[in-house]
Simulated scan of single mutants.
Amino acid sequence: MSELKQFPAEFTASIDKICARAKVLPVIVVNQIEDAVPLAKALVAGGLPNLEVTLRTDCALDAIRAMKDVEGATVGAGTVLTVEQYKQAEEAGAEFIVTPGATSELFEYSVNAKAPMLPGVATISELMEGMRYGLRRFKFFPAESSGGASAVKSFGGPIQGVKFCPTGGITLEKAPTYLKLSNIMCVGGSWVLPQNLIDAKDWDGITKLCRETVEALKDC
């Protein structure tokens, strides 16, 4: 069997640098392209500059193109399911890629990609498969229904040198339990951009909510 190509160490360093900027990675669904830039500006102003734009809507790629020009924003693509979507996100300017799970095709493409991948895992076996390709940074998903903070903490026993961004069912109240663990980089969530505020185009309200989140988590 030929030796697998390995995820570059500089990609891991890039993920670390991005995640070190904020303790929360907003998980964003953009339904209307006109909301993209003001939403990005509101999140950045609130102290959350890393933006995961999920590829769940027709305008998601256009949203990435628009949001990447917002000063201070680091924009990535989430809900990436295929290599084709990975390539499309890179072409749109995504600086990082987040997947809910991962296939061998995604792993193989990621080792030579332009943008580093944060693949989703929920089990030790999935984690070990990613490690075969040299990955050391993962999304733990769906976090709450996969055992929560106690599960990701237990991963740290047999698996050393790996860190996670848990996503899925996490709230402001639950975030500290994760962030206090040594193998957690940040947490992903959508509570900082509730749909009712987006529908009302209450960008100041979203900025306020982000600032309250940053303040509440500062000691974690």
Rank of each mutant, 00 (worst) to 15 (best):
I124P: 01
A73Q: 04
C19L: 15
P116C: 12
A66W: 10
E34D: 13
E52F: 00
D62N: 14
T79W: 04
R132P: 13
R132H: 15
L48E: 06
E91I: 14
A22Q: 08
A40K: 04
A36D: 00
K41H: 04
T74C: 07
L135Q: 03
P49K: 05
R56N: 04
Y109W: 10
T74E: 10
E91K: 14
G134W: 05
T57D: 06
Q88N: 13
T99Q: 11
Q85D: 12
Q88S: 13
D69R: 08
D69A: 13
G134V: 02
Q32A: 04
E84R: 09
L81C: 11
V70D: 02
A102C: 15
V30Y: 02
E84S: 10
G134S: 12
C19V: 15
Y86L: 05
N112T: 13
R136D: 14
L43G: 00
D58T: 10
G46V: 00
T123Q: 01
L106R: 13
T82L: 12
V24Q: 04
T99F: 11
L135M: 13
Q85E: 14
I124T: 00
A45K: 05
T79D: 07
T54G: 03
T54E: 07
V70L: 04
F107K: 11
L55M: 08
G46R: 02
L25F: 09
Y109P: 07
T99V: 10
C59I: 10
I28S: 03
T54W: 01
A22C: 07
E71A: 13
V37M: 05
C59Y: 10
T57F: 12
N112G: 14
A60P: 11
V70W: 08
I28Y: 03
A92C: 14
A92P: 15
N31I: 04
G93N: 14
V29C: 05
V53P: 03
L81V: 07
V80L: 06
G134I: 01
A22M: 05
L55G: 08
A122E: 00
R21V: 08
G120K: 02
V111D: 08
C59L: 05
Y86K: 07
L43N: 03
I64N: 10
F96Q: 10
A42Q: 03
G72Q: 06
T54K: 05
V70E: 12
E108F: 12
V30I: 06
G78Y: 10
G101S: 13
M128S: 05
N31V: 04
A113L: 12
E95V: 12
P119S: 02
T79Y: 01
T103N: 14
E71K: 09
E129V: 08
S104M: 13
